[in-house]
């Protein structure tokens, strides 16, 4: 596998986990506006997101724009799967069909 493709895939995975940490932070009881951001899950989440942005920028050196867009859309599958594992967010009919249509749309747009 092209190393840049691998970097893009790892980057999407990191971005997916960063969203889980951000949601974890968002589920804490609200104390103050600042406290919404200055806590371990949210700070780590944003650090991961930043890492993922840098990794994706690096991946662009060796992979076509279209390929990156397709790889990035894996996030639309990964985030619901992680949300199911960590937050027990259920997969219902609307969610599954909607995400499949979104993925089809991204594929049609880019390919």
């Amino acid at each position: 596998m092209n190393i840049y493709v691998l970097i893009a895939v790892v980057s999407v995975t990191i971005a997916g986990f960063s969203q889980i940490l951000l949601k974890k932070g968002a589920m804490r009881p609200h104390k103050s506006f600042l406290d919404d951001y200055l806590n371990a899950p949210v700070i780590t989440g944003y650090a991961l997101m930043f890492t993922s942005v840098l990794a994706t920028m690096f991946a662009y050196r060796g992979v076509r724009y279209m390929t990156i867009q397709i790889i990035e859309s894996l996030g639309y599958i990964l985030v619901p799967v992680l949300s199911y594992i960590f937050f027990k967010e259920r997969f219902n009919r609307n969610k599954v069909i909607g995400i499949i249509i979104i993925l089809a749309g991204i594929a049609v747009y880019n390919i």
Partner: peptide
């Protein structure tokens, strides 16, 4: 066509 599909998919999820 891709954009229309994405919009429909998002509406279905929502």
């Amino acid at each position: 066509a891709g954009i229309i599909l994405v919009v429909i998919g998002t509406i279905v999820v929502n």
